[in-house]
């Protein structure tokens, strides 16, 4: 009955977030990210992935969280090329976890405003909640930009 799926998990602020493993190409430590003046504020910049230029979206800013301190080097979750050349910046990357549909529920009430629109729902893990990102909306910078 229960359908299993594998999620790549990562931490952003106090949230544990996840995206389907099928969406992720690779994970790496951020090295030089070139800033793009005039870009939407959620865009951290551009990075060089073996000759491919990849746009980095800072999940902290995207979710309306406090900015990362300078000492914290973010991790880069590079999405598959079908998503366009984009990647998500997270504080740290966790394990790949297997979740079942029976553990899936609506986003928790504590999530409000902008971030709520960007979360499809939550999986109950033994010790905490894993929030599934609604990638279509996360990548559509225009959504939730008003707050």
């Amino acid at each position: 009955m229960s359908e299993l799926r594998q999620l790549v998990t990562f931490r952003v602020g106090r949230h544990l977030l996840g995206v389907d493993i099928e969406e992720v190409q690779e994970v790496l430590t951020a090295h030089d990210i070139s800033a793009v003046p005039l870009a939407p504020q959620e865009v951290e910049g551009l990075l060089n992935l073996r000759g491919r230029i990849v746009t980095a979206i800072d999940l902290r800013r995207r979710l309306g969280l406090q900015a990362r301190s300078d000492r914290q080097a973010p991790m880069v979750v590079v999405l598959r090329p079908e998503r366009g050349s984009v990647s998500l910046l997270a504080d740290a990357v966790g394990d790949v976890v297997e979740v079942g549909t029976e553990d899936f529920e609506d986003p928790p009430e504590t999530l409000r405003g902008r971030s709520r629109q960007l979360i499809r729902g939550a999986y109950k893990l033994p010790r905490r909640l894993l929030l599934l990102l609604e990638l279509d909306r996360v990548l559509d910078i225009a959504v939730g930009g008003q707050e």
Binding site: D32, V36, A39, R52, I53
Partner: peptide, 27 residues
Amino acid sequence: VKPLGELLERIPVYAGATILGDGRVTL
């Protein structure tokens, strides 16, 4: 010359991006 990607291509002052000899991405 490499394309900027959907999120950034609407910024009119950039024609694209490139990777310089030292590996840095440059607009």
